[in-house]
Amino acid sequence: MRRVPWPLLPVCAALLLVTSCGWGGGADGDEGRAPGPPTGVTAQAGSATSVHVMWNAVPDTPGVRAYQVYRGTTKVEEVPGSQHMVDVTRLRPSTVYAFTVRARDSAGRLGPPSRAVRARTPALAAADRSAPTRPSHPAGRVLGGREVQLSWGASRDDRGVVSYDVYQGDAKIHTVGGDQTATVVTGLRPGTGYVFTVRARDAAENVSPASAPVPVTTPGTDDGRGTAPVGFAATTHHTGGAYYIDLSWDPPRVDGVVTEYRILLDGAAATSLVWGGTPPHGRAGYSFYVGRTAGQEHRVRLRARLPDGTWGGWSAQRTVTTGG
Results as ranks from 00 to 15, higher is better:
Arg2Gly: 11
Trp6Leu: 13
Pro10Lys: 05
Cys12Met: 14
Ala13Ile: 10
Ala13Phe: 04
Ala14Pro: 05
Val18Lys: 05
Gly22Pro: 05
Gly22Arg: 08
Gly24Cys: 01
Arg33Pro: 09
Ala34Thr: 11
Pro37Gln: 06
Val41Arg: 07
Ser47Cys: 14
His52Asn: 13
Val53Trp: 03
Asn56Gln: 13
Ala57Tyr: 07
Val69Asn: 12
Val76Trp: 11
Glu77Ser: 11
Pro80Arg: 01
Gln83Ser: 09
Val86Gly: 14
Asp87His: 14
Val88Leu: 07
Val96Leu: 08
Ala98Ile: 11
Phe99Asn: 02
Thr100His: 06
Arg104Thr: 12
Arg104Met: 12
Asp105Gln: 04
Leu110Phe: 06
Ser114Gly: 02
Arg115Trp: 14
Arg118Glu: 13
Arg120Gln: 13
Pro122Val: 10
Asp128Glu: 08
Ser130Asn: 15
Ala131Gly: 05
Ala131Met: 03
Ala131Arg: 08
Arg134Cys: 01
Pro135Phe: 04
Pro135Gly: 07
Ser136Tyr: 06
Ala139Tyr: 14
Leu143His: 12
Glu147Val: 05
Leu150Ser: 06
Ser151Pro: 01
Ser151Trp: 01
Ser151Lys: 06
Trp152Ser: 03
Asp157Ala: 02
Asp157Leu: 01
Asp170His: 11
Ala171Ile: 14
Ala171His: 10
Ile173Val: 14
Val176Met: 09
Thr181Gln: 10
Pro190Met: 09
Pro190Gln: 08
Val195Ile: 10
Val198Gly: 11
Val198Trp: 15
Arg199Leu: 10
Ala200Tyr: 03
Arg201Cys: 13
Asn206Lys: 08
Ser208Arg: 03
Pro219Asn: 15
Gly220Leu: 15
Asp222Thr: 02
Asp222Ala: 10
Asp222Phe: 02
Asp223Thr: 08
Gly224Glu: 03
Gly224Trp: 04
Arg225Ala: 11
Thr227Leu: 00
Pro229Ile: 00
Gly231Phe: 03
Ala234Met: 01
Gly241Arg: 00
Tyr243Lys: 02
Asp246Trp: 01
Asp246Ser: 12
Ser248Glu: 07
Asp250Pro: 13
Asp250Glu: 09
Pro251Lys: 01
Val258Glu: 00
Tyr261Ser: 00
Ser272Phe: 13
Ser272Gln: 11
Gly277Leu: 08
Tyr286Ala: 11
Ser287Lys: 07
Ser287Pro: 06
Phe288Cys: 05
Tyr289Lys: 07
Val290Asp: 00
Glu297Gly: 08
Arg303Val: 06
Gly309Tyr: 12
Thr310Trp: 02
Thr310Ile: 01
Trp311Met: 01
Trp311Leu: 05
Trp314Phe: 10
Val320Asn: 00
Thr322Ser: 04
Gly324Pro: 02
Gly324Tyr: 02
